[in-house]
Amino acid sequence: MGVTVQLSERLRTIAGMITEGNRLVDVGCDHGYLPVYLISEKKISKAIATDVGKGPLARAREHIAKYNLGEYIETRLCDGLSGINPGEGDSLVIAGMGGPLMEKILSANWETTDSFQELVLQPQSDIPHFRKFLMENGYSIIEEKIILEDGKFYPMMKAVKKKEQESWTVEELMFGRYLLAEKNPVLHQFLLREMNIRKKILTSLRTAETEEALRRRNEVEEERQLTQAALDSYES
């Protein structure tokens, strides 16, 4: 197709997690950068780009038209997966949303969700709970990445359907089993930052005596201990 599409490191990393030759469904596509890149690089065969907002979808259509890829990328205005039928895609990407919203999108129509070969997900919040949610609903996380871009950490994961439910430790749910196992250097930066944050919170709560403050102090101390255990694993 002879075009060069520039992607952020975050989207480039997500693109690298998608199985070559698959049909993509990109929920919350924004400008449509990801499907345009993947089609232009001949990494996927076709794509459906969706968004709940008319503005973002209009920008995606402009971007798709700029590269003359309308034959390969269809756009749909819909909330989550509400406009996608089971079997229309092989790879589902949902990125840049809070974990609770992503849980809502995935669970709103399990028939469609479960029809994908793989889910490539980049939750922005409540990540330990999100990992647990996937496992409790029959998914296995098989790949994890984390990047630091413009001062923000972006953890990503690929999940597939699995009959046997997995069991991860609290530490693995917090920080990612594969990231910990490979002693990922970006995760190490994240852990150092989290440790500093927890120490500052504990210092501010040191003299607090209310029931709520004591509860919060115990909670943060538990998080500090988990973070320290993860950091210690880098030394072994």
Rank of each mutant, 00 (worst) to 15 (best):
V93T: 06
A159M: 03
L231I: 13
G53Y: 05
E111F: 04
P56W: 06
L173E: 10
R198I: 03
T207L: 14
I94E: 00
Q225A: 14
V52Y: 03
E164I: 07
E209K: 15
L134Y: 01
T112G: 06
I44T: 07
G32D: 08
P155R: 01
R198L: 10
D30W: 04
G28Q: 09
E209S: 15
S125V: 04
P123D: 06
Y234S: 06
L119T: 06
I127M: 02
T207F: 09
G89D: 04
E144C: 08
R193S: 11
A49G: 07
D114V: 07
V170T: 12
G53K: 11
Q6W: 10
T207A: 12
D30C: 10
A159N: 02
A15M: 12
L179N: 01
L92K: 00
D51L: 06
G2F: 08
I197D: 09
L11V: 11
K43F: 06
K183I: 02
K54Q: 13
L180H: 03
K46Q: 12
G80F: 00
A15F: 09
Y178V: 01
L106H: 00
V120E: 01
T19Q: 14
T169H: 03
Q225R: 15
T210R: 10
T4A: 12
Q189F: 02
I147H: 07
V120H: 00
Y67L: 07
L92Y: 01
P128Y: 04
I18V: 15
K162H: 10
L38W: 07
V170M: 09
F175T: 03
S167N: 11
A60F: 05
T4M: 13
I197K: 12
L92I: 06
L179R: 03
N218H: 13
P100C: 04
G176N: 04
S140K: 15
V36N: 02
K42F: 07
L134E: 01
A108W: 04
I64S: 06
G2Y: 08
I197G: 01
N196I: 02
Q228W: 09
V120W: 00
F153L: 09
R217F: 12
I201M: 13
M17I: 11
P185V: 10
V186N: 02
N137E: 07
P56V: 07
T13H: 07
Y67E: 08
D26P: 05
V25A: 03
F175S: 02
E221T: 14
E20N: 11
G21C: 11
T112W: 03
E144Q: 10
V120Q: 01
I64L: 10
T207H: 13
M102S: 01
S40V: 09
M135S: 12
I127N: 00
E171H: 01
P86L: 06
H129M: 09
R131I: 00
A15Q: 07
E182I: 10
L192F: 02
H63V: 12
R206I: 11
A213I: 10
E172K: 03
